[in-house]
Amino acid sequence: MTNNLHLVWHKSLVSKEERRHKNGHHSFILWFTGLSASGKSTIANAVEKKLFESNIRSYVLDGDNIRHGLNKDLGFSEEDRNENIRRIGEVAKLFVDSGIVVLSAFISPFREDRDRVRGLLEEHEFIEVYVKCPIEECEKRDPKGLYKKARSGQIKQFTGVDSPYEEPFSPEVTIESHCFSVEECTEQIIDYLKTKRFI
């Protein structure tokens, strides 16, 4: 373990508030959580496109993409999943500090992990978006064939099959992706952000 006794935080000469002022908008995390194939990444990218078109600086952190680089050394044990979310939380916090809106699309199955990320941030900087979709519908979609592999035993510890998914108790936004189109889900999130005057 790294010894942090000799590390000193170096304070920036440019504040988060100054970056937000220059960008012309609030910075925060939209944390998309839900089962595999619930539509997290699709909706997150659709929301980002809307934000981009409105000149709001934003970036999507996608679970699969992050595991190609930053977290390629992690597996899918509970410990590795915890570390996966811890790292993403720290990266997302840096985006918020830089004045950018970050859209984080991760299954993030455990409430404790999501709450830990929330605890890294200030009030109104963590917006939990629960992309709610019945597992039966997710299995019908199964664009990557993961549920099929999990049911056949090729994938172990798969969320919703042989590893739990803990639904959020009180997310800021709940999107029922099996009831609404991607466009409608996107508008629900944009409307929420406008109502809160975050954008």
Rank of each mutant, 00 (worst) to 15 (best):
V117D: 05
P109R: 07
R111W: 02
D142I: 11
C138A: 14
H124E: 15
P134R: 11
V117S: 04
V117R: 03
D142F: 08
E122V: 00
D113M: 06
Y130M: 01
R114Q: 11
L120M: 15
V129A: 08
K144D: 09
F126C: 03
K144W: 10
L121R: 05
R111S: 12
Y147N: 06
E128W: 06
C133M: 08
E123L: 05
K144Y: 11
R118M: 02
R114S: 10
K149Q: 15
E137P: 00
D115N: 15
K140I: 01
P109C: 08
R118K: 15
R141P: 07
V129P: 01
D113L: 02
E123T: 13
L146D: 09
Y130D: 00
V129L: 04
R118Q: 12
D113Y: 12
G119M: 02
R111F: 02
E128M: 10
K144V: 09
E128C: 09
V129H: 02
G145A: 06
Y130A: 00
E122H: 12
F126H: 03
V131G: 01
R141N: 10
F110W: 02
D115W: 01
R118Y: 02
Y147C: 03
I135P: 03
D115Q: 14
L120Y: 14
E112V: 14
P109E: 10
P143Q: 11
E122S: 14
L146C: 06
L146R: 08
R111A: 08
R116F: 13
E122G: 15
D142W: 09
I127Q: 03
Y147R: 08
R111M: 12
Y147V: 05
E112I: 14
K148V: 09
E123I: 11
L146E: 10
E112T: 14
K144H: 11
R111E: 10
P109L: 08
V129F: 01
V117K: 03
D115P: 00
F126K: 02
G145M: 07
K144S: 07
I135C: 05
F110A: 03
Y130E: 00
K148Q: 14
K144R: 12
R116V: 00
P109G: 06
V129G: 05
E136L: 02
H124Y: 13
E122R: 13
E137R: 12
E128P: 08
D142K: 11
E128F: 07
E112H: 12
L120N: 04
V117N: 11
E123R: 14
R141K: 09
I127R: 01
